[in-house]
Design a protein around this nucleic acid. Structure first.
Lengths: 227, 227
DNA sequence: GTCTATAAATCGATAGAC
DNA sequence: GTCTATCGATTTATAGAC
């Protein structure tokens, strides 16, 4: 993603010269970032209230009280905005899970990861929809993107689960013989199922997400983990 | 849903009179049903190949080689077509699960239900997306609709799972103390998670749906069901 | 009953005035 | 840097000829 809008160096150097210092350049960059953030915040609000398909440049422009064309000076296209939303979405998803890693005991950590996963999904339905349920076009790109050295936030989040099961297996506490990756992805699937069903149907499942998680963890502790 | 197109009685009685018998009326009705089915088949194909958002009256008209306006003589709107697709989708979903009920043993029946659920989702991705993953607008309506006396096909499908767990509990074969409904909906969530993740991300989860199901059933048999 | 033609709305994106 | 104005494409749905 080479967004030319992020490197206006030539223009500013020509106009102000470097003898003037970089303060004005920095101010411009800051204002630019602020405008972009304003656009993204409005976009998130629209997706939350009206769904992803309702995310149009005109609606964003109305929300931030600018003309539609102005947004194109800060974002290449509507797709670029959607991609940025997904990117930020995976990052806040990872941030929501991370505190669970402070639990030293892998079983307690696992339960906390599940609780945090579900809470994130229910409290941020617009973000959850965007990264896990909508048109995979943008989300898949953001999930699979290879950052410079590290994995994408989405992959890192999954890695939290995998490492927890690897640890349980190392300690000989797994009751069945299965790959940590397979177990982790099965858990992921269940968490995703609980959240996405709740977000799609308001009245079904009749059981609350918390109770569904409790039944699942009861089964999990009995059937997968040795004490 | 009072679709005036379904009750053209007055028109036909005026035109043909009842002395002429009902054969022509029946032929008209049959042709009408055939046209509607042709529209729905084309709509299914479009949803399969290009996604639900690409379902437009023009595309349907092109596919069946009629003018766009003609479709409005048979369907009230695009929404009515989407609703009909969901309705038929729930019915074929139920039909795909039903054969599992021939297993007398509830545990074997449960495993077969899981296999059939996942197979249906993977083999009918367009229908699955439509009834369980897309805009809940039409699906929710079709799921919650109260047919004359019986439940909707969607509710009936869920009832297959619930009754299986009720049977297991009656026989004293449940290892944990939980409502059959809660257990059934937890299983539903997991099945839905496995299928929908696979349909949304092509490369993640890395574990195949079959292997995910196997891990899950291993945990389930160990942690939930007494032998 | 089907067609052509089109209305009315809305979309993404761009051009040019200021 | 922001605006107005608009292009060109797309949509649902309708009107009227045949």
């Amino acid at each position: 993603m080479n967004d030319v809008h992020f490197t206006p160096t030539v223009h500013f150097v020509k106009r102000f010269g470097y003898t003037q210092g970089v303060s004005k350049v920095k101010r411009r960059e800051r204002e630019r970032a602020e405008f972009r953030e304003e656009v993204l915040a409005a976009a998130r609000r629209i997706v939350l209230e009206e769904g992803f398909d309702a995310l149009t440049m005109r609606k964003i422009a109305d929300a931030i009280e600018y003309a539609p064309g102005t947004i194109y000076l800060y974002f290449e296209s509507r797709d670029a905005i959607a991609f940025e939303l997904c990117r930020a979405g995976f990052e806040s998803f990872l941030a929501a899970l991370l505190p669970a890693m402070s639990f030293a005991d892998p079983q307690l950590r696992l339960l906390e990861l599940g609780r945090r996963y579900i809470r994130f999904g229910l409290e941020n339905p617009e973000t959850y929809r965007l990264i896990f349920m909508e048109e995979p076009k943008y989300a898949s790109e953001a999930f699979h993107e290879e950052a410079d050295a590290a994995d994408s936030p989405g992959k890192q989040a999954l890695a939290l689960l995998v490492s927890t099961f690897a640890e349980l297996r190392e300690r000989g506490r797994l009751a069945i013989d299965a790959e940590p990756t397979a177990i982790a992805e099965m858990i992921w699937a269940t968490m995703h199922g609980i959240v996405s069903l709740k977000l799609t149907y308001d009245r079904y499942p009749q059981t609350s997400p918390d109770d569904l998680l409790e039944v699942f963890t009861n089964v999990l502790v009995r059937g997968l983990i040795k004490p």
